[in-house]
Each structure stands twice: as structure tokens, then as C-alpha cells.
């Protein structure tokens, strides 16, 4: 797999998995207005995933049969590759199994409760904001264009989740405890965002990626400022989970994909 395809899929998989998770709140949020807010945000993520999967499919279709066969080990997609069939965005999203998914472990964590969902969004949205700010200057025109479009959406996502962190952290005794616990539970999934894998390094080298150490610096500052305002404490543990970018996931992703992919698996290429 080329570094560009690997990188495109990282961005796409983060987007589709975050979108799916937030979409699970549809019909279940504490109040109607927030139900709509979350599904709006979910659709922003899924819209970005579509753009990125289209770009990934385009790159894949342009490869030689031999290159294609080396990309994915998920059987359904591998078979398409060896038959030299043209793939599309849906194949990328629905025919790859968990080990071919490159999303961060953070975004696949379950919703649990409102505070946990808010904390997960806050940590990820803040990362996304600085990542896409950097990617706006990517020398890859497609990535730069997607980054520019996404940044407007991501700016609102970050505003929404930061507001809620402050509201709950600096809210009642109970909301403060729940918010702090959520932050503690999710903290070990944050390190992975800033640990570059081979694709991150190659893309940065080529002028197409983002400098994750710079993103981390900005992320640290903002997370510190918001948690302080929310009267929360940044967890002290520095041991970090790794693996998502390279296809080693928590057990949660398999269940999500089973949900997401059932229709395409049971009724391949169905349309309605």
C-alpha cells in the first residue's frame, strides 16, 4: 500500500467511525435539540469520510493488480482486487474488516453516557481542528481541499464539545465527577493521535502531511485551557495505548463494523 492511500484511509476511517458513533445517539440524546446537534455533527463526519473514501478508491483503482493484491487482507476486498474489479467508496467502508481499519482507538470507544461522549468528542475534535489546520497547506491538492472544507465543520464541533466539557466540569457535583472520570478513562487513547506511523512520517516528509509534534503542542495548550476552565484535572498517567493506525483495535470496533457492514455483506452491491 502506498503511504498516500494508507494516510487517506486513516483520515477516512477516523471520520466514518466517529460519525457512526455519534449517529448512535440519534433518537437517544437527553433532549431533542442535542439529538439534532449530534446527528448534524455525525453527518459532517460521514460527509468527510465519503470524500476521503472516494479519493482512496480512486488511488486504489489506479494501481496495478499486484499492488492491489498487497493492500488489504479482508477477503471481500482482496477478491475484488485480484479480479481487478473497480471499487468505490462503499467498498472501502463496508468490505474491510477491523484489521484493515486504520482509525484511532479513541473514536471507536463506545458512547457510554453523555459525559463520556462529550469527553471523547472534545479530545478528538481538538486534535482534528489542529490537524486540518495543518493539512490546509498540504501539497496534495485533494487533501488540502478536503481539509479546508472540513475545518469549518470541525471548528463548530470543537466549540460544541469544549462548551459541554466546561458546562459539565464546572456544573454540578455529579456532572463534575462524571466528566473527570470520562477524561481519566479516555486519556490513554490520546497519545496515539500524536505518535506518527510510517504513513504519517512519509507524508510529512513529502510536504503532504502534518507535523504531529506541532499538533500535539497546540492540542496540549487548548486542552489544558479548557480543562482548567472546567475545573477538571488533566490525568497524570502517561502510558498510552497504541495500534489503531496499524489495524490493531479494541474489541469495540468489530461490533461496530458488524452493525455498519451487515447489509453490504448479506446483500452485496444492493441498491435501493
Amino acid at each position: 500500500m502506498t503511504h498516500l492511500l494508507d494516510y487517506t484511509l486513516q483520515l477516512a476511517d477516523n471520520a466514518v467511525i466517529m460519525g457512526q458513533r455519534l449517529g448512535e445517539w440519534c433518537g437517544h440524546a437527553p433532549i431533542l435539540e442535542q439529538d439534532i446537534a449530534l446527528t448534524n455533527t455525525s453527518l459532517d463526519h460521514i460527509g468527510r469520510a465519503r470524500n476521503l473514501y472516494q479519493f482512496a478508491a480512486e488511488q486504489f483503482n489506479a494501481m496495478t493488480a499486484e499492488e492491489k493484491a498487497g493492500c488489504f487482507s479482508s477477503v471481500a476486498l482482496y477478491n475484488k482486487a485480484t479480479q481487478n474489479a473497480v471499487v468505490d467508496e462503499d467498498d472501502m467502508a463496508f468490505l474491510r474488516d477491523a484489521w484493515d481499519y486504520k482509525n484511532l482507538l479513541l473514536v471507536e470507544q463506545p458512547n457510554n453516557d453523555w459525559a463520556f461522549t462529550v469527553a471523547r468528542s472534545f479530545l478528538y475534535d481538538t486534535f482534528n481542528f489542529y490537524l486540518f489546520t495543518a493539512l490546509k497547506s498540504s501539497n496534495n491538492a485533494t487533501i488540502a481541499a478536503i481539509a479546508e472544507k472540513s475545518l469549518k465543520e470541525v471548528t463548530y464541533h470543537m466549540r460544541w464539545s469544549s462548551e459541554w466539557v466546561i458546562r459539565l466540569g464546572d456544573g454540578t457535583e455529579e456532572s463534575h465527577i462524571l466528566m473527570q472520570q470520562s477524561l481519566n478513562s479516555l486519556w490513554s487513547y490520546t497519545g496515539e493521535m500524536f505518535t506518527p506511523n510510517a504513513a504519517d512520517k512519509a507524508m510529512l516528509e513529502a510536504g503532504a502531511g502534518a507535523d504531529l509534534s506541532r499538533v500535539k503542542q497546540q492540542w496540549d495548550e487548548r486542552v489544558k485551557a479548557i480543562t482548567e476552565e472546567a475545573t477538571l484535572t488533566i490525568p497524570a498517567n502517561s502510558w498510552m495505548q497504541q495500534g489503531g493506525k496499524d489495524g490493531r483495535h479494541t474489541e469495540h470496533l468489530g461490533f461496530m463494523l458488524a452493525d455498519m457492514q451487515f447489509m453490504q455483506r448479506a446483500y452485496p452491491d444492493m441498491e435501493w
Binding site: I31, L32, E33, Q34, I36, A37, N40, Y156, R159, W160, E163, R167
Partner: peptide, 20 residues
Amino acid sequence: SLHAADAQMALENARDVYTR
């Protein structure tokens, strides 16, 4: 109309509910 805890949240909820 909509429900919100304060003015800030009301503006954001309004953005999501009425300007999509």
C-alpha cells in the same frame, strides 16, 4: 422555540435546529 440552559446554548441549539 427550543429548550436550552442559557443563552449560549440557546444560540447553538438554534443553529442546529433551525439553520441546517
